[in-house]
Computed example of a mutant assay.
Amino acid sequence: MKYLKQLMIILTAYFIGVLLQTIFKLPIPGTVLGLIILFLALYSGIVKIEMIEDICDVLISHMSFLFIPAGVGLMTSFGLLKGKIIAFSVIILISTLVVWIVTAHVVKFLRKVCAR
């Protein structure tokens, strides 16, 4: 029952994000809005880390299993990717570098803001 309550907190944030995205037709995915809402709830103290800690451990321990549908979807679409491997490799490399750089700057900014 404890896991169900904790999962409901996470799913509530997710559904609020999806609802906001649908109602306001925002260009940000509802899942990302849900993560932002959950982050803000944790940051403000509305949700305490202890309230979702156990289910988060369970989800993280099963993370590789949760990526199977994406991997199967990629395998079934491999015919579309054939012959374009270099273009996709370049795109993956560039996007990975962009994510690293943006993440580094966000972490640097947050450390500066939180140190105050």
Rank of each mutant, 00 (worst) to 15 (best):
H105V: 10
S77K: 00
F109Y: 11
P27Q: 05
I36A: 15
L74E: 04
K112S: 08
M8E: 11
I46N: 04
Y43E: 14
M63Q: 07
G79S: 12
S77H: 02
K82R: 12
H62F: 15
F67A: 14
L19R: 04
H105F: 15
I46D: 04
Q21V: 01
I49F: 12
L59A: 05
L110G: 05
D54P: 10
W100S: 12
Q21A: 09
L11Q: 13
K25M: 06
T103K: 12
S95V: 06
I49T: 11
L81K: 02
P29A: 03
I101D: 05
S89D: 03
Y3L: 15
S89K: 00
M51D: 15
I55K: 04
L26H: 06
L38N: 09
V90N: 08
L26A: 05
F67I: 14
T31F: 06
K48N: 12
Y14T: 10
I46V: 14
I52V: 15
K2I: 10
D57P: 07
L93M: 14
P69W: 01
S64E: 14
V18C: 09
H62L: 15
V90E: 10
I91C: 09
G17H: 00
G73N: 07
M1S: 13
M63H: 04
Y14C: 09
I86K: 00
V47A: 11
I85R: 03
I10M: 14
I68H: 01
A41L: 15
E50A: 13
I91G: 04
R116W: 01
L11Y: 12
L4K: 12
S44V: 03
C114K: 07
T31W: 04
G73P: 01
V47M: 10
T31P: 02
F24W: 03
F109N: 11
L81C: 09
G45T: 07
G79Y: 07
K25F: 06
A87G: 10
A70S: 07
I46W: 02
K82N: 11
L20N: 00
L93D: 06
K112H: 03
V47Y: 05
A104H: 13
L20K: 00
D54T: 13
P29S: 03
A41Q: 10
I9P: 07
L81E: 09
A115S: 10
G34I: 02
H62N: 13
L66R: 05
W100I: 15
L74F: 07
G73W: 01
I86N: 00
L40M: 13
V72P: 02
D57Q: 13
L42N: 03
Q21C: 04
G79M: 08
T103P: 02
L4V: 14
Q6H: 06
I92C: 11
V106H: 03
Q6S: 13
I37P: 01
I9N: 09
I10K: 11
I94R: 10
V72W: 04
L59S: 03
V98F: 11
I101A: 13
I52P: 05
F78Y: 13
V32S: 01
L66Y: 11
M51N: 15
G83N: 03
G30I: 02
F109T: 11
I101N: 08
K108W: 10
